[in-house]
Computed example of a mutant assay.
Amino acid sequence: MAVDVLYETKAKATGGRDGAAETLSGSFKVQLSTPKELGGAGGAGNNPEELFAAGYAACFIGALKFVGGQEKIAIPADTSIVSTVGIGPRSEGGFGLEVALDVSLPGLDKSEAEALVAKAHEVCPYSNATRGNIDVKLTVA
């Protein structure tokens, strides 16, 4: 599957889950901390699952706007997504992720909102990257 890359970014991580990560452009820097549930100390830093959850939610709103533009449906300015990312051992070995996206499209009819979410799930780069690898549950508030 070829991708016509229009934009790319680079980030560097050091120290693993208890280290730091930053974009090479210098626009973003974060301290990392392993959650207690995964055997870490917890702490003030973020973890990769939090970053993935935030990125997926933001990207999915972008996909909703793209689909809305194609369908001539205005996506409400107060659209929001709560993205839940879970991590744990897989029955096949190793570790896996699961995702739940709870989408709020205030003012839109529920069936119209559900149709938009389904179409956005087909075009969102995060959805395309995870399809067949991670269970993604979509709900519309």
Rank of each mutant, 00 (worst) to 15 (best):
I87H: 11
F60H: 14
A11E: 11
I61V: 15
T9G: 15
V67H: 03
L138H: 11
G86W: 12
N46W: 04
A54C: 10
N133F: 05
A53E: 10
S111C: 04
S27Y: 12
T14A: 06
Q31C: 02
K65Y: 05
P106F: 06
V3C: 10
P76K: 11
E37G: 11
P48C: 14
S33D: 06
A129P: 08
R17W: 03
L116A: 01
G55Q: 10
E114C: 02
D135E: 13
F28P: 02
K10R: 15
A74M: 09
A74Q: 12
L6Q: 11
G62W: 01
K110W: 01
T79P: 06
A13S: 10
A54E: 09
S25N: 13
E49D: 13
A2I: 09
V30Q: 05
G107F: 03
V117Y: 00
S111Y: 06
G15T: 07
A63M: 05
D109A: 03
A21I: 01
V99C: 03
T79M: 07
T9H: 15
Y126I: 04
N133K: 05
G62I: 02
G16M: 05
D109Q: 04
V99Y: 00
D109H: 02
F95C: 05
S111V: 10
L64Y: 08
E112A: 12
F52W: 06
E8I: 07
D135Q: 14
A63R: 02
A20E: 13
S91M: 13
S25K: 15
E50V: 10
G96S: 05
D18L: 00
K72N: 12
L6A: 10
K12F: 02
S33C: 07
E49G: 13
I61E: 08
E122T: 02
R131V: 07
D78C: 09
I81S: 01
E49Q: 13
L101M: 05
D109I: 01
P48Y: 12
L6G: 10
S127M: 01
N46H: 09
V82C: 08
M1S: 14
A118E: 07
A120D: 02
G42T: 15
T14K: 01
N128Q: 15
V103C: 02
L116E: 01
P76G: 09
D135C: 07
G16R: 03
V85K: 14
G42R: 08
K12P: 00
C124I: 00
V85E: 14
V82W: 05
S83K: 08
L64I: 13
F52I: 03
A129R: 09
G16E: 02
V30W: 00
F60A: 05
D18N: 10
D18W: 01
G42C: 12
K36E: 15
F60T: 10
L138A: 09
V123P: 00
A44D: 15
F28M: 11
